[in-house]
């Protein structure tokens, strides 16, 4: 896979990042290098191996359905850049 300028812009948009022109070029080079490096793995034939979603052989870690004490609203809203007494406040969405 080749990282194009369009792809960098698409990723930037999805990440809500504004990139400068020289950064676009820089990331394009760097990301391509990373992918090339990882590409080495493709030399190994994995056609007969099941895809692995998790590296650890652990299954079924559950909690019981019990309500536990959570934090207060004051604590929850404390770190928000903007809030009312009750709500988190963000710039107008639509």
């Amino acid at each position: 896979m080749k990282i194009t300028k369009e792809l960098i812009l698409h990723i930037a948009e999805l990440s809500h990042l504004k990139l400068k022109e020289d950064e676009i070029e820089k990331f394009q080079i760097e990301l391509n290098q990373i992918l090339e490096y990882v590409d080495n793995l493709n030399e190994i034939d994995t056609s007969s191996i099941e895809p692995l979603s998790h590296p650890l052989p652990i299954v079924n870690v559950f909690r019981e359905d019990r309500v536990e004490k959570s934090i207060t609203r004051e604590e929850a809203l404390k770190n928000a850049p903007e809030a009312t007494d009750e709500f988190f406040k963000v710039p107008k969405v639509i």
């Binding site: 870690v61 559950f62 909690r63 019981e64 359905d65 019990r66 309500v67 536990e68 004490k69 959570s70 934090i71 609203r73 929850a76 809203l77 009750e86 709500f87 988190f88």
Partner: peptide, 30 residues
């Protein structure tokens, strides 16, 4: 472990996990 109760005052059934604070881990409800 936050309550799922409908109609509670806003932002009273929340915790670092469901607010997505850094470093928290989800544990699945059986």
């Amino acid at each position: 472990g936050c309550s799922t109760k409908f109609g509670n005052p806003p932002n009273t059934n929340i915790c670092p996990v469901c607010m997505g604070h850094p470093g928290v881990l989800p544990i699945l409800n059986k």
